[in-house]
């Protein structure tokens, strides 16, 4: 009985890893943007654009790398629009982020119906996909071997990227400047940091990461293109940033938790339970709300909310006297 349970949880964790990968990319990206003081609610739009363009590029070129590169660049490009509108033109970050999401959704749907062969839809096409790479010996470790060492290249990359990003933000000089810009842009300006350039840079990086998250969906997790491919994952990523209190390492825990809900959902459907699929499908969204309530409540108690002080505020240099 005991062994069966462990095997069950190992398989849940395995699906959680696959489902959580896109969330980690999107969340880490949003952490970069928010650390620099830019709230980008366009994650959902950048992800879905990354998913559609990445799949289309991979399909037509037959080259998976082309898909990954295209998806990430399109994500970055979407973020660049957000930068221009909010940083240069000083528009409201909330509205601009929503606009990115709405425009991204519409554009992805439009492109998805035109980017197939000779203007036909992409839906239903089967293109190249990221394969799982089994690492010899390591993947043979009981239970966790398969969970950790039988994954695709984008998940493996995170093993390096996440600690690296955490180290970069916390321990390096550019990381310090990044935090300074998000916490107190006036002071950062005095230190000699170019606030505008810094915010542009990290917000675009955030878009690249969101694009990668989308690419992972259309090239690995649910290979192919469907209009509801992201299904609110971008918004879950925005919530995960709060859950992770702006810490990349903790975002992995959150992403696994949400991925795990997906996995339990699959498992229960496979076993054939009496719980309707619709109710199981509600779980990730309800969990997001529950987690958000708990986190906000306890952060409030500690009087220390982890958000950068200048998050969401435009920076106008002329205002400095």
């Amino acid at each position: 009985m005991q062994t069966v349970d462990i095997a069950f949880w190992a398989s849940v964790l395995s699906i959680a890893m696959a489902a959580g990968t896109s969330l980690v990319y999107a969340t880490v990206g949003e952490i970069f943007a928010e650390k620099s003081g830019v709230l980008n609610l366009g994650v959902e739009g950048m992800m879905i654009m990354g998913a559609v363009s990445g799949f289309a590029a991979a399909y037509h070129s037959g080259n998976i790398l082309a898909g990954v590169v295209t998806g990430s660049m399109v994500g970055g490009l979407m973020a660049l629009i957000h930068c221009f509108v909010t940083i240069t033109l000083l528009a409201d970050q909330v509205v601009s982020g929503l606009a990115i999401t709405l425009l991204g959704g519409g554009l992805a749907s439009f492109l998805g119906q035109r980017l197939g062969v000779d203007g036909t839809p992409l839906v239903g096409l089967i293109g190249p996909r990221l394969l799982q790479i089994r690492i010899p010996y390591l993947s043979d470790i009981a239970y966790i071997g398969d969970v950790l060492f039988n994954r695709d290249i984008m998940t493996y990359s995170l093993y390096i990227v996440v600690p690296l990003v955490a180290f970069y933000i916390r321990r390096t000089r550019p990381g310090l400047f990044l935090r300074a810009v998000g916490e107190n842009p006036q002071a950062a300006d005095v230190m000699g940091v170019d606030v505008v350039k810094c915010r542009y840079f990290y917000t675009v990086i955030g878009g690249v990461f969101a694009g990668l998250g989308g690419v992972h969906l259309s090239l690995s997790y649910t290979p192919g293109w469907t209009e509801s491919i992201t299904g609110g994952r971008g918004w879950i990523a925005v919530a995960l940033v709060i859950f992770a209190t702006w810490d990349p390492i903790r975002s992995v825990v959150g992403a696994l938790l949400f991925g795990g809900v997906n996995a339990i959902q699959f498992r229960m459907q496979a076993i054939g339970t009496n719980v309707p699929a619709a109710l199981l499908n509600m779980l990730p969204y309800l969990l997001t709300i529950v987690v958000l309530v708990i986190i906000t409540y306890f952060e409030g108690l500690r009087k220390k909310v982890g958000a950068p002080d200048a998050l969401g505020l435009p920076y106008i240099r002329e205002e400095r006297v």
């Binding site: 606009a99 709405l102 425009l103 991204g104 749907s109």
Partner: peptide, 8 residues
């Protein structure tokens, strides 16, 4: 979805 592109 041209409509949504235009609106966005």
């Amino acid at each position: 979805s041209v409509a949504y592109v235009l609106q966005g």
